[in-house]
Write a protein that binds this DNA or RNA. Structure first.
Lengths: 356, 356
DNA sequence: CTGTTAGCGCGTTCAG
DNA sequence: CTGAACGCGCTAACAG
């Protein structure tokens, strides 16, 4: 206490100074030896089973006091080795910086933490090679469960091994495999609903700027669009759909450019397969006409609060990350409990958001 | 092979069917026993040290073939236990769904993966209690390094223990402690630059809607603002700053509301401490006047591509997540290599982005 | 009520 | 070139 003013103006330094004096034991054996009881005894009180085995109150107190003073950090590696269980869940997605996956992870992390599980995260950048390595890496770390959004048909040796007791749940992308439960948004119906509404409000053609059409989720959205096209008397809509391989701003920019060139004017209504494509398309509009014409009807998959910034009528499809996460977690727990997944496919409805 | 058409139309199912037949060994001992050599021999070829110990070419091939056929998954728990090293890095932030932290994590994950490290992630929701638990949990999992953005003055027993050989790096929030290297954006100068530019362009008062002013990073931005105020002849600017406790949309909405009430009109120029606050402020403008007046000069900390959607002149401050991640990683590796951190504070410049 | 012991699978060391 | 033995810290089963 003499040095409480050790470093005035830096409140933390005092704490540092005090805490450094205390050595922290790292094994139960060390504690047992120090206070002269057996390992088991220490373990029982640390694990809260003192009552159950009727450890004497004073022994209990001795141990508790010691731990309170010196602290104790369980060695999870040793625990895992013994129990063949890591209390960890792997989470593998194409891109962690993608808002949808970030939100999904955030929700999932809360559920995991409440059950004493931690999340191991990896992103694949849509590269099957990196995906394989990530899955293998997490598996060798003995994760009890693996949640992932595959960028290829899932066929990893390790996963497919019957002996593997790792729970697996796929999210967001349904490659139509039969082995693992899959949780995803109802892309077909959200595509249908959005498209219908677009056609109704547009009273004319609606162009669809669509990137990454090989993804199952996008395919479903496209099917919805096609059906709405026919309902609106626009045929199969094949001349309304514009494709790009990459899902990024440049693709949206490019697609809008050729669309404008083709129409010789800006489209009265268009929708995009993702926010990135929308961004690019809007940049192109701004570049071509000096501003984003406020009369254009805009539709997009995925929602973002910043869409508020547009004066336009905007229809967007919002996925329910909390619900997705919660279903993922259910399927996970089922399998970790030893049973089979009760459902092989969970489909979560989306919400259609209308602005202005 | 008879059942190659097992389930036509579902390409993955065939793979599943085949792979299930193969059992995967889980220990080197198992492999050794199966092919009749010693554990050491198997280990040496698996670890690529066959040449070094001159294992006979044919033994080598036998092992390699066996592994190629059956696969092998290293048990990381056992490895960790033995080596007292987990090859894992903990990452603790207030909110994973926050775009800045998501990008930071994404960058960091790439660096980690290249070195065979995995990321364990947790978010605290700005709650010191959850933060403590998260840190403790990761520590007991034996992470080799811990990266975190504290929501309180860092004073965790375990961290502060001299014996602890966990590398620690703080990010984004500098509580001015002396113990751990800290990497953060140059909030003072970016605040100063943004504010100066705002005053220059506004040619009049600039209002600052500021949430969570107790955070060190916000304090630094505020200092920058104050200096710019004085330079612009607006005094200390105390009547230009508007505070809120929570960093969210509601706070921005609220602050803009009272600002409009006070001015009896919309402000000609304002800036926000975060995108969330900006969103709220813009919503209020829209609610009050029916649209976002295009003449208003807008400034904000943090950047987002969607700011493009505004027709307004917008100045925003973009943090350099890649550089932050790379510096964090450097400080991490230094400590993991056993040396002391060479720098206790790294400050990364921000970029001022001007739109329209 | 408390103490002892045997592995979990890997890396290391030393002896052939 | 290959094999054997030990121990990392923890849990579970059993012995007092």
């Amino acid at each position: 206490m003499v040095r409480a003013n050790f470093w005035p103006g830096h409140p933390a330094s005092y704490i540092v100074f005090l805490q450094n004096l205390i050595a922290m034991p790292k094994t139960v054996e060390e504690i047992a030896k120090k206070i002269g009881v057996s390992i088991t005894t220490v373990r029982l009180v640390i694990n809260g089973q003192a009552e159950k085995y009727r450890i004497s109150a004073k022994t209990q107190k001795v141990v508790e006091d010691y731990v309170a003073q010196h602290g104790y950090v369980l060695n999870h590696a040793a625990r895992s080795l013994k129990l063949k269980r890591s209390d960890a869940i792997g989470f593998v997605v194409p891109e962690l910086a993608n808002a949808f996956f970030a939100r999904l992870m955030s929700e999932l992390e809360i559920l995991c933490r409440n059950r004493g599980l931690v999340l191991l995260t990896a992103s694949t950048h849509e590269d099957p090679e990196q995906e394989n390595r990530a899955v293998e890496s997490l598996l060798s770390r003995g994760v009890d469960g693996l949640v992932f959004a595959p960028c290829q048909i899932p066929g990893h040796k390790q996963l497919l091994n019957k002996k593997s007791n790792t729970a697996v749940v796929l999210v967001d992308r349904d490659y139509n495999q039969l082995r693992f439960p899959t949780v995803l948004s109802d892309n077909y119906h959200s595509g249908l609903d959005l498209s219908r509404r677009m056609f109704t409000e547009a009273k004319g053609p609606v162009h669809f700027l669509c990137a990454h059409a090989d993804l199952p989720s996008i395919q479903d959205r496209l099917r919805g669009f096609s059906v709405a096209c026919q309902e609106a008397g626009q045929g199969a809509g094949t001349d309304l759909i514009h494709f790009a391989n990459e899902d990024n701003t440049a693709a949206g920019f490019q697609m809008m450019q050729s669309l404008i060139a083709h129409l010789c004017t800006v489209p009265a209504a268009f929708m995009c397969s993702s926010l990135l494509v929308l961004e690019g398309a809007l940049q192109q509009l701004k570049a071509s006409t000096g501003s984003i014409p406020a009369h254009i009807l805009i539709g997009t998959f995925d929602d973002h609060a910043m869409l508020d910034l547009l004066p336009n009528r905007v229809l967007s499809v919002k996925q329910d990350e909390a619900m997705l996460a919660s279903l993922v977690f259910e399927r996970l727990l089922e399998q970790m409990g030893g049973s089979e997944a009760t459902q092989m496919r969970n489909t979560v409805p989306c919400r259609l958001i209308c602005r202005n």
